[in-house]
């Protein structure tokens, strides 16, 4: 084994390994995707009283519309920590920051055929492999009693 080979195959990777590291930096909640719908924005939305029109004029267009407007889903993702990975070799180095500890939030709304709001609920998914359907489908399939005066 020549000197160059020894340096290239063993010493350099060893040096990179010894001088690299990672760190998880917790921080305040930071929005990654979507538009956050705060609690205060939904205080005027009441099942049985509000309509699809009211919701649109209050919250704007939803991220997803299911079953021809029966369900509205507003969705946003927050990050609570960042993984920083740094590595150096000789005089050069690089650093990568990746958001970790993310949580996807959903505001789910169901409307009756006459356009009145049947129910609304806030859901969240903090799992590693996030899926809209894994979180929202059970809610959509769940039957709930309808508010007075609202036909299902």
């Amino acid at each position: 084994m020549t000197g160059n080979t020894l340096a290239g195959r063993i010493l350099l990777p060893l040096l990179v390994l010894l001088t690299s590291g990672c760190l998880i930096v917790p921080h305040r909640a930071v929005r990654l995707h979507g538009v956050i719908v705060p609690q205060t924005a939904t205080t005027t939305i009441q099942p049985g009283a509000s309509t699809r029109e009211d919701v649109l004029h209050c919250l704007g267009r939803p991220e997803r519309v299911e079953e021809n407007g029966r369900y509205f889903i507003y969705q946003w993702t927050m990050s609570y920590a960042t993984l920083v990975v740094a590595a150096s070799a000789g005089y050069s180095g690089s650093m990568v920051a990746v958001p970790v500890s993310t949580e996807t939030h959903f505001l789910c709304l169901e409307f009756a055929p006459d356009g009145r709001l049947l129910r609304s609920e806030r859901l969240h998914d903090a799992s590693l492999f996030k899926s809209l359907h894994k979180t929202v489908d059970p809610w959509m399939n769940k039957s709930t009693p309808h508010p007075p005066g609202v036909s299902p």
């Binding site: 699809r52 649109l56 267009r61």
Partner: peptide, 14 residues
């Protein structure tokens, strides 16, 4: 409109 609801009764633009 970028989105329509209730058979075109409600329009939404960005």
């Amino acid at each position: 409109a970028q989105a329509e609801f209730e058979e075109g009764r409600i329009w939404v633009y960005a």
